[in-house]
Amino acid sequence: MLIDTNAHLGPWPFSHLTEYSAAELVAHLGKHGIAQAVVSHLGAVFQPDPMPANRLLLAATRRQAALVPMPIVNPMLANWREQLDLCCAGTALRAVKILPNYHNYSLTTSRLDPFVAELKKRGVRLVIGVRFEDVRHRYFGLRIKCVPQAAIAKFLQRHADMQVLCLGLSLPEVRELAKTCPNFLTDTAFIEWIKSMEVLSGEFPIERVVFGSQTPFFVTRASVDKLTMAQLSAKARAAYSSVNAQRFFSL
């Protein structure tokens, strides 16, 4: 069974991506053996307040048991507690995603401290969206960069008692972060090199990797085949495919 931790609903204005309805996304992922997916709404990336998109997400996924909504919160907005209230009330999932670069703040700011403290108090998991796409050839007008590895490291060190899932890390970034930070998980979407899964399982604790398809940005089958065709131990395969995601998200 595959659990996808990196899938999206909603529109992306900068490329020809397929905009799935919740039912279409379930059918599409199911066709590729993905039984459950943690999804966010891309409308929350660019709009000044993520909550309208989060409400759409919660409504769209209400009747889709295979989709687990993961709201996007902007902790720099004055109403971040209200955002958390709504997100936690509307979903069984105890996790929120933040997008520091798309929401114009640094992971190193101390303004995140009360937000993180509140997450810990409520028992809510934190997910950091590091990148959505390859910046080399995306829409020229979009200047937002990926979350810098150094800032992620500082954040992880500052909150060393907290496990954080980073979505969209590359293999070199995982390698660098692993040197100083034992408290992060990574998804598989942007990790690529020949035999990437085998390499990753040899270098990085297997309990800290979760499957991510990056649908609809990526061809879902390509992301799935990367994992299912890899020569992994049964333990690593199960961990990457579902066990780690189940544990992290309490699914």
Binding site: I194, F218, A222, S223, D225, K226, T228, A230
Partner: peptide
């Protein structure tokens, strides 16, 4: 730089 499962899968 890439891997065949992904490049064929796409």
């Amino acid at each position: 730089i890439r891997e065949s499962s992904v490049t064929l899968g796409r």
